[in-house]
Amino acid sequence: MGTFSGIEYRHGLMLFFFLVFPTLCPHAGFADEVVVDTGDRLAGTVVKMVEKTLTLKTAYSEPVKIKKKQVTAISTDSPVSVHLMSGEMLKGRLVTDERGRLLVQPGVGREAVVVFWKTIKSINPPPSKWSGNLTIGGNRQSGNTDRFSSSVGAEGTRKTEKDRINLRFLINSAEEDDTLTARNRYGALKYDYFVSRKTFAYLGIEMLSDDFKDLNLRTVVGPGVGYQFWDLPAVSLLLEFGITYFAEDYDLVPDADDQWISGRASIGLTVKLTSFLAFDEKIIYYHNLEDSSDYQVRNEASLNSVLGSNWSLKLRNIFERNSMPPATSAAEKNDSQWIMALQYTF
């Protein structure tokens, strides 16, 4: 009987520590605290705050997502990286004092810095990494007519709080009855530096080669400014204006080679129409500053349908217009091509 009582005693002691002790000491193991506008106090570990959303790791549930505007006070037990809207970065513990001020305490012997919650852009932002897609497409027809076409492309973006790099290329070719009917290559590289949360300065270069326009190489390079209206998973929109150096080198008609200064305007739009369908469009407009009647347009529009996991089916249309193609060239003013491809997103 005494042995049974001892077992009961030990079970009761264990239940006390597992059930009662965490209630009495809610911060054990999770010393960070977040107070929200409802007055609730949430204990856990502050993981990060990006895109105006704070992530709090707790012992009793999945990580909790809290909107930045809902936070009225915050304290951390360990140092965190605090990135301000101004671009300044502070390292230390976050503490909300008795006067309601938010302090960043760098360490023992160093003076705490007073910051305003609304001026904090992020906390512990994850390291930047590349994201983008790879596409490959093709078509084969045999019988009365032998046709073959192929398309390979890629786009990658790396973004941090201060800058963004974007690069992309696209190679298309086609032949009919063993005769080449299309071959063009396009590449672009652009660097954006954000001077504010939405405004950025950029430097970009674009290159195009098209055998059937007799275009050996078109090079467009120059700086500009842009504004990012939205950059969200559901919608992204940016607008750019700049000045470019424009040069064209023609292969078979060297007399058509030319170079000039042009204005550049660009718009980029991505919209997630449904959970499995997205629309993307990039329009670039160049206007010759030396000849008002000379302009060029490149419009890339695509529709992506998710197949599963990271794979999707991409239907793309590329439209180009050159208002004044060289008179000695066989190139038309308008050029359009449709591409169906399989896309892998990373």
Rank of each mutant, 00 (worst) to 15 (best):
G268A: 12
P325M: 11
Y186P: 03
D192I: 02
S292Q: 14
K198V: 06
K190H: 05
E240R: 13
W230P: 02
Y285P: 01
S323W: 07
G268T: 12
S305Q: 00
D192T: 05
Y295D: 11
Y186F: 14
K272R: 15
L239F: 13
D257E: 11
E320R: 03
K198T: 11
S305D: 00
L313C: 09
A234H: 06
E240A: 09
R264M: 13
V235A: 11
L315W: 01
S323H: 07
R321S: 10
V220W: 01
Y186W: 12
R298A: 04
N216E: 15
S302T: 00
L313D: 03
G268N: 14
D231R: 00
G222T: 01
A256C: 13
D257F: 04
I284W: 01
L237M: 05
S305G: 03
G308C: 05
R218T: 08
L277H: 08
I318E: 08
R298V: 07
F279A: 14
D291C: 03
P223L: 09
G224C: 02
Y227S: 08
L217M: 14
I243G: 15
F212N: 12
N304P: 01
A256L: 10
L277D: 10
L189T: 08
L237S: 01
F241G: 15
Y285K: 09
V220G: 01
Q228I: 03
G268W: 09
L269N: 08
R316H: 06
T244R: 02
G263K: 05
L269E: 09
T199N: 14
N310L: 07
D291F: 04
Y295H: 12
L269Q: 11
V306N: 00
P223C: 10
S196L: 07
L232V: 07
S262Q: 04
I283E: 07
A265T: 14
G308W: 00
D214A: 13
R264N: 14
R264E: 12
A327T: 13
N310A: 13
L269D: 08
N299P: 02
Y227H: 13
L252M: 11
A201W: 01
G222Y: 02
T199R: 12
A278I: 00
G242F: 03
S275M: 05
L252S: 15
T219G: 12
D257M: 06
N288P: 06
V225E: 07
E206L: 10
L215M: 12
T219D: 13
I318H: 03
N304Q: 11
L269K: 05
A188N: 15
S262Y: 01
N317R: 09
S293F: 06
V297R: 03
Y245I: 02
V235W: 02
I318F: 02
P325V: 07
